[in-house]
């Protein structure tokens, strides 16, 4: 019983973490309130759906691995889109958060309509690869679905790669410098416009990966993104912006709470409980649970 609960908590955690990683970069590090982030997740989901359709038509023998290709493709599609979005729109709005919200909300609406018009106004589903359909029978009454295990693994892999990229590579260092002080980065020789563009692209690509993995749990509709975006923002704000580790911890915390609350209370009470707790924490720690204090 306990193992099952803990595993459910873990899988909610990995889903929240996947959703929040992209936003932690776009909103947390760059400070861009991207209201179209949910639609980017949907874009990733549709990219995966498209991959499945293509594979079914042309390489039916490779259907078992289409999902891996789908995840990669989702990352590239959304990050390329993100790159052009940053160059054409976001870069002009860095100091204007309200305008950014409005503009990106508009982008979100446009994307939703495009999905409706050109893909399918009704929810679409992707076929699950055979090796993801089974369950892992741990003992007689404890079993974990393979698809969930896969998502947990994917979430950890993604988080590890993002961490290594940001903290162990030269480009990652430049991203952290630019997001901490855009003007000063330029004044020490960093081409901050280029860094901004690929940072934003990275955040969008991560949204794509999240969206792609959700196709295993639920169908994708044009307005699917709306359902994810609120939770995603809660996780990032709760963890403390500017702190990637905070985002991960916060996803873990909220994921576990959600599972346990749902176990003891009803679903909607659990949600209300979490929101109350988040509000209480932010009242006492307005910069988020895991924000660190430094001299600026």
């Amino acid at each position: 019983m306990f193992a099952l609960q803990a595993f459910t908590g873990l899988s909610v955690f990995s889903i929240l973490m996947l959703m929040a990683l992209g936003l932690a970069i776009v909103f947390g590090l760059m400070g861009v309130i991207n209201m179209a982030h949910g639609e980017l997740m949907a874009m990733g989901a549709y990219a995966t759906y498209g991959t499945s359709v293509l594979f079914e038509a042309y390489f039916p023998s490779l259907m078992s691995i289409y999902f891996i290709v789908g995840v990669v493709l989702a990352f590239f599609a959304t990050s390329v889109f993100g790159y052009f979005l940053e160059r054409s729109l976001i870069q002009f709005l860095y100091k204007r958060p309200l305008d950014t919200m409005l503009a990106t909300w508009g982008v979100g609406l446009i994307l939703q309509q495009l999905y409706r018009q050109f893909i399918n106004p009704r929810p679409v589903e992707v076929p699950t690869a055979s090796w993801l359909q089974g369950v892992w029978q741990v003992s007689e009454d404890v079993s974990f679905p393979m698809s969930r295990i896969f998502i947990v693994g994917l979430a950890f892999l993604t988080a590890t790669l993002v961490y290594l990229f940001l903290y162990r590579t030269r480009r990652g260092l430049l991203i952290r410098a630019v997001t901490q002080n855009r003007g000063m980065s330029g004044a020490i020789g960093i081409n901050q416009k280029r860094v901004d563009a690929y940072t934003f692209a990275l955040g969008c690509g991560l949204a794509g990966i999240a969206g792609s993995s959700f196709t295993m749990l639920a169908s994708t509709a044009p307005d699917t993104g709306q359902a994810y975006i609120v939770d995603t923002f809660i996780v990032v704000v709760f963890g403390g912006v500017e702190s990637l580790l905070g985002t991960i911890m916060s996803a873990f915390f909220i994921g576990q709470m959600q599972t346990w609350f749902e176990f003891y209370l009803s679903g909607s009470m659990a949600r209300a409980g979490i929101l109350l707790l988040v509000i209480a924490v932010l009242y006492f720690r307005p910069n988020g649970l895991f924000a660190t204090k430094v001299r600026r």
Binding site: R176, G183, G186, T292
Partner: peptide, 24 residues
Amino acid sequence: AESHERVIAGMGYVPQGREIFPYL
């Protein structure tokens, strides 16, 4: 020129208030 181009051209800048990257 952009700031980073000026650095490449040979200018160094120490701002008022230092503006160290606090989390690096």
